[in-house]
Each structure stands twice: as C-alpha cells, then as structure tokens.
C-alpha cells in the first residue's frame, strides 16, 4: 500500500487515487507536423524507469485534482509531490 501525499488533502491510502502514468510527456503542439516515428514516440514509448519516476496521480475519491508524485519504482518510496499550478 502506498501513502500518497496529495498536495491538497494530505497523505491518503492509494485506494483513493488513480494512477495516470508518467509525467512530463507534453502533447506535441503540432501533431500533424510530426513524422509517424515521432508521433509513435509520444503515443507509446515510455521511460518506464527503474528508480526515480515522475508520475501523475489523481485524487479521485478526494479533491479530484491531478498532481505529480516522484516515487522510486523499485522500493515504492515516495520522494516528493507537486501540483500542476497553484498551491494548497
């Protein structure tokens, strides 16, 4: 079980949250300008990092906000959390 530190509500059991995958994959501004390879890279390719991992979580059963968590994917230790703008 992970204790997810929601920046708005405080630490809660992971049951209250939805995992949203790796953070820092901005949608390309002009998809039509990309090659198929570049588009596939955005669409499917992931770092899937072993170790420090920045990822998106949503406090689904709470404030419903998406935020960023940094977590070690080997130990599941949570290293930090941040918002998508605004401060609690």
């Amino acid at each position: 079980m992970l204790l997810i530190p929601c920046p708005w509500c405080g630490p809660r059991e992971d049951d209250e949250f939805t995992f949203g995958g790796e953070a820092d994959f901005p949608r390309p501004a002009e998809p039509e300008a990309l090659t198929d390879e570049q588009w596939a890279d955005y669409l499917f390719m992931r770092d899937n990092r072993r170790g420090r991992h920045r990822e998106q979580w949503c406090h689904t059963a709470g404030c419903r906000r998406w935020f960023i968590v940094e977590r070690d994917t080997v130990t599941n230790e949570i290293l930090g959390a941040g918002t998508y703008g605004g401060s609690p």
């Binding site: 939805t18 949608r27 949503c58 906000r65 998406w66």
Partner: peptide
Amino acid sequence: ASLEQWLQTE
C-alpha cells in the same frame, strides 16, 4: 477521468 486529466495536466 480522461477529460479531467487533459484539462488539468495538459
């Protein structure tokens, strides 16, 4: 969930 994710993160 998907709409919220697009809205809030992108």
